[in-house]
Design a protein around this nucleic acid. Structure first.
Lengths: 147, 147
DNA sequence: TTATGTGCAAACTCTTTGCATTACC
DNA sequence: GGTAATGCAAAGAGTTTGCACATAA
């Protein structure tokens, strides 16, 4: 079963405390939006979404919060082509992405062998691997069927 | 032996002709700078470099030319973190990147098995793979030795 | 001659920052 | 009460666009 929202909010709370910062509703609201998101969101999209529950939130808060959450590794971002960054909640397990060049859909996947292979490649070059991002670009099943 | 500059310039010429466009020194100058580059360059860096041989070139021309060359697949771009796009000449063979988070160096590599594995992963999801980008982030050999 | 390419400057988009105010602890 | 967080507006950075002029075919 997937982690519940409450757990992420708790994580945020202890993170904030650990850093000697103060709690804020805005950060919780942004995290909540990311939790419910069905896809990767741009800062602007997150802004619009949070506005529905808090009409006075400012875009700057979105940016500040995303920067904070990304630094603390609670969210991660992906960007491709000429589009800006898109954010997703870090749900623990690492995964990679397939990006449909027609509809923009992002499909997540995880492949054990791919992870292993990367370690191997890094080792060969004496490169200390911290993280990676594999983006596969192409046409998704649905778009192929549409011609 | 690597392809010579003259061959890239010829390629550019025939490409321009094929598209019914006109030859220009600026495009050749930009391509030449990319050819001699030892690393991935930002538009601004390319601008500064071309300026050394053509002091009147405009930044807009750099952007327009890069967009053209990328669309025609003579150059490709990579972007990571909060930094903007960086460009490199497409020297034919596909490759992936290791990016040092300390010094920013970009190490290129090619791995046969990685290519094969991706095809396999894509096929599993009925995803029609067109291209991919594997970015490995970590610390390069030199930076590790510096502590 | 005619359409494309260029340089310049203005416009735009996305993101960050300064500051007064608000909210948390 | 003191410090961090926020909202707003202004500033920045990077990129694109409109236009008059230059240039290739």
């Amino acid at each position: 079963m997937d982690k519940e929202l409450a757990l992420y909010l708790d994580e945020l709370k202890s993170l904030v405390k650990k850093r000697g910062l103060k709690h804020s509703h805005q950060r919780e609201q942004i995290l909540t939006v990311l939790f419910h998101a069905k896809k990767h969101l741009t800062p602007e999209e997150i802004y619009q979404e949070v506005k529905k529950i808090n009409s006075t939130i400012g875009l700057a808060t979105i940016y500040r919060t995303l920067a904070f959450l990304e630094k603390e590794e609670m969210v991660s971002s992906i960007s491709f082509g000429s589009e800006g960054k898109k954010y997703e909640l870090n749900r623990g397990e690492h995964h990679d992405h397939m990006i449909c060049l027609k509809c923009g859909k992002i499909i997540e996947f995880f492949n054990e062998e791919l992870e292993r292979l990367q370690e191997e490649i890094a080792k060969k070059q004496d490169f200390k691997l911290i993280t990676h991002q594999m983006n596969m670009y192409g046409i998704c099943k649905e778009c192929q069927n549409q011609g």
